[in-house]
Design a protein around this nucleic acid. Sequence first.
DNA 1: TTGAAAGCGATACCAC
DNA 2: GTGGTATCGCTTTCAA
Lengths: 337, 337
Amino acid sequence: MNGGRGTQPTIVDVAARAGVSKSAVSRVLSGTGRYSDETRERVERAAAELGYVANAMARGLVSGRTHTIGMLMRDASSMVYTALHAVMERRASELGYRVVTTTGVGRVEDEKSALAALVSMRVDGLVVCSGLMPASEIADFAPRIATVVAGRPELHPALSSVYCDEVDGGAVIADTVADAGHTAVVVLTVPVGDAITQHARSRAMVERLRARGTRVIDIDASFVRPPEDLAADVVDVMRESGTTAVMCPTDRLMLDLCGALARRGVRVPEDVSVTGFDGVHPLADDWIGFTTFAQPIDRIGREAIDLVVARIDDPASAVEHRSLRGTVVPGRTLRRA
Amino acid sequence: MNGGRGTQPTIVDVAARAGVSKSAVSRVLSGTGRYSDETRERVERAAAELGYVANAMARGLVSGRTHTIGMLMRDASSMVYTALHAVMERRASELGYRVVTTTGVGRVEDEKSALAALVSMRVDGLVVCSGLMPASEIADFAPRIATVVAGRPELHPALSSVYCDEVDGGAVIADTVADAGHTAVVVLTVPVGDAITQHARSRAMVERLRARGTRVIDIDASFVRPPEDLAADVVDVMRESGTTAVMCPTDRLMLDLCGALARRGVRVPEDVSVTGFDGVHPLADDWIGFTTFAQPIDRIGREAIDLVVARIDDPASAVEHRSLRGTVVPGRTLRRA
DNA sequence: TTGAAAGCGATACCAC
DNA sequence: GTGGTATCGCTTTCAA
């Protein structure tokens, strides 16, 4: 029955080859129960010779555990999420868990199906890293699977979360700009529907600047708007109102904006100061010199994993919302006005 | 039996609620076989009310298919791999597959276990993206699972592969440097054990430069060496032998090197020209201006997925090795000597 | 069109 | 210590 193309050896094949029962094989390979040294040796040899790899589906089906944490990533090309991914992978591995990730490819529908894929795999825990997916969709699964939202402020009563204090971050970086003497500032703001986090931080920037009496020009930076358009708007505003600084909701957008400004002959920081947000390598680097706000990605990732694992171990553990503060990265793209 | 904490509804629960047999539920939900409109409606309603998500393990166990492609990533924090990940996710989704990724956290042992995890999940196909894992380890699974190696030159007779032509890339970027008039050049070379790809491209740079009569100073850039050490070496070599350019095996290392050089008062490109390799966003950006060589990541990812899927559909399809050429990114870190 | 029953590959509990 | 057997949740014949 085996040997057919694509067929993988099963526990029965191993048992036959070792001349023992499949129960024996199971015990030896999982290290549970009792078995003689001879049995162990024969089983191990047979398994090695066959290149046996236990079927996780069969195992998970009966044991009800997969020792796997599912991570839903919004976007595999965003540095914030990939950095989070790397940290979580490391922490999970320390705690004896494997991480599998899935991503949507942009639309909310895709994300739902990516989430469903994780649920259908019956991962032991779920970490949702996406500023897109609505909380209610996530919450549906929370009673059944240990779930944590990472990287976005989510205060849903059924969902634990770990995130960067976006309001503090937006305010702090806004203070940095105001302290540098800028009195007319453009803030690129993101609608809440595009990304909850970016919306929150850009609102916080606007509010803090206004509170300090700074003149704020609010430019719509919906995801659909190309950086060239934004740069055009910025240039117009600079002409009309003497703006000396532009605040971006992400480092990535900041980079695109800088490029588009350069193409229009506007130099950063000589002609205009620019700030970003996120502070993830490699953009937040000495040599590149972006002035930005660094999210505490390491702590977010680590604590998110710790929280899911705690909830896996004790499903009754309390829901927690952890707001973590980041820090300003000085850089060289912000000058005194 | 259900309703216990953490228990997920099963097909039996849906059947009971809908007042039909589980066979009927299965048929309706998978859209196979025959059923009446009324049955369909009742089943769909019951499933929705229960928030039923089919258990992929049970399903895969009996059907023998998971409609999933496993991706083994070397490192979730490397932009090359994450970019590849994003592309593959998109292409796989177009072809009706889901991608799940796992990564090692650095050591070969971890990667083996990450690979085993994918195999144990019985993914339909495997894409290995790692310059670390030995081909023989991967090849063990090739007869059982459709397997493709992506992103590294791998000519193993049992493994299909898609990769950037590193030798061409190294030579072309070396030509660019030589053409700019540099006659004494430092090449940071990586040992084959650290990363096959980086080794190959750095060797190619050295060889092409030598072939053109350029003086080459070869500095060991093993992964264990901190950028500060490399920068110190570079500064020494510049003093001793009038080197005017440094070629790095990756953009990432180039960034670190530039930083370390800056801390020593060496400016790029005023005092020394520097080139990178990879050409992935965001480092390969107009504004940042790295002179580098862009791997054809989009094509690599896309064709890797196409190859695995072809092999899933027809396990007898031929092994292929596709070498793809990249392009030079001019940038501003390379000056005429 | 529908339901009963036989597995898929592993674990766990059971006598032996 | 060891092997038989029920079982996990689902798909897939096969009768009815």
